[in-house]
Computed example of a mutant assay.
Amino acid sequence: MRRSFAPWSDPHAVPLIRVENVTKRFGEAIAVDHLSLDIFEGEFFCLLGPSGCGKTTLMRMIAGFEEPSEGRIALAGKSLAGVPPYRRPVNMMFQSYALFPHMSVEKNIAFGLKQDGLPKGEIAARVGEMLRLVQLEKLARRYPAQLSGGQRQRVALARALAKRPKVLLLDEPLGALDKKLREETQFELMDIQHELGMTFIVVTHDQEEAMTMADRIAVMDHGRIVQVATPGEIYEQPKTRFIAEFVGDVNILEGHVLGQEQGLWRVRSSAAAEPLTIDDPDEVLHQDQAVAIAVRPEKMAIQRDRPEAGSQNVLGGEVWDIGYLGDWTVYRVKLDSGAIIRVTRANRSRYVENPIDWDERVYVTFAPDAAVILAE
């Protein structure tokens, strides 16, 4: 389903939310800087970036809690300028969950529906539907203090969904959960969003969370969007060094372009005795241009034996540190140049005879198409 869902690639598709050249200032500080963005109906969209990059401010402007200093935000073709939050067809789930401690689970979920004046029968049906959706039927009469963190998160989600908004905004929704529960809840959110067919916009600084849940990710930095793409494109084809370093682990090798041979770039780098060979046809480079080569740790291979003469992309060094993570082993290798890189290897068997150890001389290699050249 996710592979086939790509309305952004259709030039005739009309976005549900359009952010046009929006700027938000707080005094002299610029939180969002001339930002434009399209989000489509039914999309699970993620705003990803470090603290202070403007992602939450952008979400609050969509919700109506902040007004743009410049620019325009439209939903379903209608400008949201001057429309108060309670008049917008959006709902927001806050990081703190903001549950009413004196109300039971079912009353928390029903609160917004009562405020809207819905009939009692419809409220009861809607609350029952939400309880089933988040699997809390047996806890309907408990109070927030009697719930676990994960259960409180589900109550907040059910309350936000009960009013059936066109768009659900989630601000760091899983930040208070432990790692295992957070991973389980990511898939639950994906299932709920798919079942409802609703548009979800989530703000997070957790790269793994964004990569798992989102149809597309907008990576933000200093109030601007640096790249909008699918998780696979963000990870495998980062546009800038900032994105490559922010999303996942990466090794950066500095170098200068020597030229191109048979469609492959040749790059001189202090990390290797011989020029590196990189298959990155999308880049337009010139001779002697300074570049950074990004290679993910899992795309590198490590071995004791020196590779055969003529092998491509060979880096020599010594094992500096080893980290055993269960499914992966991480090797920190100090290259002959003095730089330290990370190489990961999957632990496919329970026992490895004569494993690579600390202080051993090793050789690290990677394929030409495993690397990305970053000119920025």
Rank of each mutant, 00 (worst) to 15 (best):
residue 302 I to M: 07
residue 354 N to G: 02
residue 86 Y to W: 14
residue 180 K to I: 10
residue 376 E to D: 15
residue 254 E to R: 11
residue 78 K to H: 12
residue 290 A to R: 12
residue 124 A to C: 05
residue 141 R to I: 00
residue 374 L to I: 14
residue 294 A to K: 10
residue 252 I to V: 12
residue 244 A to G: 05
residue 305 D to N: 13
residue 357 D to F: 04
residue 356 I to C: 14
residue 123 I to G: 00
residue 58 L to I: 03
residue 196 L to V: 00
residue 27 G to P: 03
residue 130 M to S: 04
residue 15 P to N: 06
residue 275 P to T: 08
residue 258 L to R: 12
residue 306 R to C: 14
residue 168 L to P: 05
residue 290 A to V: 08
residue 247 V to L: 07
residue 108 N to P: 05
residue 328 W to G: 02
residue 219 V to H: 00
residue 363 Y to A: 12
residue 188 E to M: 06
residue 39 I to V: 15
residue 337 S to P: 02
residue 39 I to Q: 00
residue 299 K to F: 12
residue 270 S to V: 06
residue 119 P to S: 08
residue 233 E to G: 00
residue 134 V to H: 04
residue 357 D to I: 12
residue 125 A to C: 07
residue 279 D to Q: 11
residue 262 Q to F: 03
residue 82 G to N: 02
residue 333 V to P: 04
residue 100 F to A: 08
residue 44 F to G: 01
residue 186 Q to A: 09
residue 287 Q to K: 14
residue 257 V to N: 04
residue 96 S to V: 10
residue 148 S to L: 09
residue 3 R to D: 15
residue 21 N to T: 13
residue 264 L to Q: 10
residue 206 D to S: 06
residue 150 G to I: 01
residue 218 A to N: 08
residue 67 E to Q: 14
residue 256 H to V: 11
residue 357 D to Y: 02
residue 376 E to Q: 11
residue 143 Y to I: 06
residue 338 G to S: 08
residue 274 E to P: 00
residue 111 F to R: 03
residue 193 Q to T: 03
residue 241 R to P: 01
residue 74 A to I: 03
residue 76 A to Q: 12
residue 331 Y to Q: 03
residue 220 M to R: 00
residue 100 F to Y: 15
residue 251 N to L: 06
residue 96 S to Y: 09
residue 143 Y to F: 15
residue 261 E to M: 10
residue 221 D to G: 01
residue 329 T to D: 06
residue 159 R to W: 06
residue 245 E to H: 03
residue 349 S to D: 10
residue 130 M to L: 10
residue 290 A to T: 10
residue 199 T to R: 01
residue 257 V to H: 08
residue 218 A to L: 06
residue 370 A to M: 09
residue 47 L to F: 14
residue 206 D to Y: 09
residue 36 S to V: 07
residue 305 D to S: 14
residue 45 F to M: 03
residue 166 K to I: 02
residue 247 V to S: 04
residue 205 H to D: 05
residue 32 V to E: 07
residue 290 A to Y: 09
residue 274 E to K: 10
residue 296 R to F: 03
residue 135 Q to G: 06
residue 183 E to K: 15
residue 145 A to M: 08
residue 323 G to C: 11
residue 20 E to C: 08
residue 150 G to A: 08
residue 85 P to V: 14
residue 65 F to W: 05
residue 248 G to K: 13
residue 125 A to D: 15
residue 202 V to T: 11
residue 131 L to E: 06
residue 275 P to R: 10
residue 107 K to H: 14
residue 174 L to N: 05
residue 216 R to C: 04
residue 282 D to M: 09
residue 293 I to W: 05
residue 140 A to R: 15
residue 365 T to L: 13
residue 322 I to P: 10
residue 374 L to W: 01
residue 336 D to M: 13
residue 276 L to C: 04
residue 161 L to T: 08
residue 193 Q to V: 01
residue 340 I to F: 02
residue 141 R to T: 08
residue 100 F to S: 08
residue 219 V to A: 01
residue 209 E to K: 12
residue 294 A to V: 12
residue 280 D to V: 09
